[in-house]
Write a protein that binds this DNA or RNA. Structure first.
Lengths: 341, 341
DNA sequence: TTGTAGGCGTTATCAT
DNA sequence: ATGATAACGCCTACAA
C-alpha cells in the first residue's frame, strides 16, 4: 500500500477565499491583532470554525522563531523522584501554552549529549536539565548553546547557568539534628555514589550538625554505593555487623533508607527501637504505613514548576545578565523511623 | 531590557556561499541524496561543520509535512504505572529519531481534549493515548482526527482505533486461580472505580476462576472505590469486620493491595497467615521486602514500546485498513503475600 | 480597515 | 552533477 500523504489541511488562504478577503486580514483576525473590523473578524472566525482550520505550528515557528516548546531532560523517569518534577514542569508549561519534550537519558551521557543537536534543530525555546553527569561537564556544553537553560537537582554548583536546587546541605543538617535530638550518638551515614554532589552536600550538612554537638564521626560509619535500595541494604548489613554498630543511620535518599530497613528487618532489629533511620526525598512510598519513614522532604513538584517558570519569564522578558540561582528549602518530615510518637 | 531575538542561525544558504555552490546542492549533500559529487559533498559537510550548521526542523516539517514527533497522553505521570510506559515509548521513539511530547492530563477530561487542537496544530505524526476517560468518548474524538492513534491501557474495548492492551480478564483469572490453588475459599474482591474497564475485566476473569472451582461469589465480598491505597485500606477494614470475613483478597491493583496490607496490619492480622492478598500491576514497590506482594505483572515498559512501534511502522508503511489490536499477556509473579514458600 | 508582497529555511521539481 | 525556482503556511512591514 502506498504511503498516503496527510490530507492537505485548510490554511488561512482557504479561509480568506471563504470569507472573501485577503489572507493577511485573516491572519490578523485570528491572532487578535488590533485594527480589524469587528464583523470581518467575526466572519473570519466563523469561516475558520466551519472549515475546521488549525494553524500550522511549523509555519508559524518558521517566521516567529519560537517553537513554544521546552525540553525536559532527565536521567530516568522511572526513578520516583522525577515524575513529580516532570509533572510540575508540564503543568507550568501547559499553563503558558508551551509543550514539553520528554527526554529520558537513561543515565547515558552519550544519549544526553545527543539531545543537544536535536534541540538546536528544533529550536526549542528553553530546556530544563537534570543531568546524569554530576560534575557538570555535560551541563556546561548545554549552557554553551545559549539556549535558555535551567539546571535542576544536584550537580556541580559552579557551572554557569540558571539553577533551581534544593539546599542539600541544610537537608543533611536537619537530618543530623533530628537524630541528635533523639539522643542518638553513634550515627552512620550511607550515601549514593561517593563524590557525587548530592551525597557530598547532604553529608557535609550532616557533619555540621554532629560538629555542633561535639561529635566526631567515625569514618568506619560512612559508606557509599549507589542510590538504590540494594546498595542501602548491603551497606547496612556491613554496618550492623561491626563491633560498635550504629544506633542510627542517615541515608542520603529514601531508596537507601528502605534498604536500611530491609537489612534491619533481616537481622531482627526493630526500627526505631534498635536502630533509627532517616531518609531524604520523601518519595511517595515513604509514607506507606509499612515504611513510615522519617525523611527530609524535597519540594519536587515545586522544583519542576519553579524551573519552568524561570525559563518562561526569561523567555518573556529577555535573558537576564546574571544567572538566577533559586534554592528551595527541604523540610523535615517526621514519621516513625526515628522514634517520634 | 528589550527582548532579543534569537541570533540568526546559519542556513544552507550560508553553507552554499561558503562552499561556492547553490543551496539546492547543499540540501542534497546534507541529506545524502544520490547524485552529488563526492568531494562537493565533502566540502559541504566540512563547511556545515565549520559554520556550526543545524537544520531548522520547522522549515523542514513545513515542506515534508512531518513533525517527527509523537505525543504521549497520560492521566498522571506520578502514578507508578505510567513512568515505565513512558520510558518504553520514549526509548522506541528515540531509536527511530522521533521526539515525544509529554502530555499529563491530571485525570482532567477537559485538559485531555484541549491537547487535541494542540496536536492538530503541531501536526504530530501520531499519538499514544492512555485516556482518563474510561468509556472511550474522549478516545473516540481523538480517533476521528485521522491522526495515527494507539490507545493503551484500559478503556472501552469497542472503540475504533489501534489498541495495545493487557489481557485484564486473563490477569484476573490468574489471580483467582492462584488463590484457589492455595485453598482459599472465601475470597474477596476490591476494585477501583466501579464500572471501570480495568475493574470490570479483572473482576470477570476472577469470577471465571471461581466458577470453575464451583464457587459462587458473595456480593458482600465485592467492594469498589478508587485505585488508591486509602481506598484499599478502607474497604479492607469493612471486609475484615464482617461476620464471615474473607481469607483472601484479590485487589485490582497493587496500590489497593498495599492498602489491604495496611488494614490487616492494623487489625493485627498476619499476611499471609490470616489473610492472603494478591495485587495487579507489579509496581516497583511490590518487590520491596516489607511489601513482598504477589501480583499479576503487567509488561509496562513493553506496553509503551509496542505502542510506539506500532505507530512508527504505520507511519512508515502507511495506515492499515484495519486497526491493530495487540494484547499483551500478564504474568503471575509469586512473592509472599499468598502463602507461597 | 484592508490588501500586496517579501521572507522565514527547507525540500522538490524542473531544467541545464 | 548542479542550478534556478517554486512551493510549504504563516507573519508583518508597507502601501492603499
Amino acid at each position: 500500500m502506498q504511503h498516503k500523504r496527510r490530507k492537505n489541511s485548510v490554511t488561512i488562504k482557504d479561509i480568506a477565499a471563504e470569507a472573501g478577503i485577503s489572507y493577511a486580514t485573516v491572519s490578523r483576525a485570528l491572532n487578535n491583532r488590533p485594527g480589524v473590523n469587528k464583523d470581518t473578524k467575526f466572519r473570519v472566525q466563523e469561516a475558520a470554525e466551519r472549515l475546521g482550520y488549525s494553524p500550522n505550528a511549523a509555519a508559524r515557528s518558521l517566521v516567529t522563531r519560537q517553537a513554544c516548546a521546552l525540553a525536559l531532560v532527565i536521567p530516568d523517569i522511572t526513578n520516583p523522584f522525577f515524575p513529580e518534577v516532570a509533572r510540575g514542569v508540564e503543568e507550568a508549561a501547559a499553563r503558558a501554552g508551551y509543550s514539553v519534550f520528554l527526554c529520558n537519558t537513561n543515565w547515558n551521557g552519550k544519549k544526553e549529549l545527543s539531545f543537544l543537536s536535536l534541540f538546536e534543530s528544533r529550536r526549542i525555546d528553553g530546556l530544563i536539565l537534570a543531568s546524569s553527569n554530576d560534575n557538570g561537564t555535560i551541563a556546561e556544553k548545554f549552557a554553551q548553546t545559549c539556549l535558555p537553560l535551567v539546571a535542576i537537582s544536584s550537580f556541580a554548583r559552579d557551572i554557569q547557568c540558571n539553577q533551581v536546587i534544593i539546599d542539600d546541605v541544610r537537608g543533611g543538617y536537619l537530618a543530623g539534628c533530628h537524630l541528635l535530638e533523639h539522643g542518638y550518638k553513634r550515627i552512620a551515614f550511607i550515601g549514593g555514589l561517593e563524590g557525587t554532589q548530592a551525597t557530598k552536600e547532604r553529608f557535609s550538612g550532616f557533619l555540621k550538625s554532629l560538629a555542633e554537638a561535639g561529635i566526631e564521626i567515625d569514618p568506619e560509619l560512612c559508606r557509599y554505593g549507589s542510590f538504590t535500595w540494594k546498595s542501602g541494604y548491603h551497606n547496612t548489613l556491613k554496618l550492623l555487623n561491626m563491633a560498635g554498630r550504629p544506633d542510627a543511620i542517615f541515608a542520603a535518599n529514601d531508596l537507601l533508607a528502605m534498604g536500611v530497613m530491609q537489612a534491619a528487618d533481616e537481622l531482627g532489629l526493630n526500627i526505631p527501637g534498635d536502630l533509627a533511620v532517616i531518609g531524604f526525598d520523601d518519595i511517595s512510598f515513604a509514607s506507606y504505613p509499612r515504611v513510615c519513614l522519617t525523611t527530609i522532604a524535597q519540594p519536587k513538584n515545586k522544583l519542576g514548576q519553579v524551573a519552568a517558570e524561570l525559563i518562561l519569564t526569561e523567555l518573556k522578558e529577555g535573558q537576564k545578565k546574571e544567572f538566577s540561582k533559586i534554592v528551595l528549602a527541604p523540610e523535615l518530615l517526621i514519621r516513625r523511623s526515628c522514634g517520634c510518637s
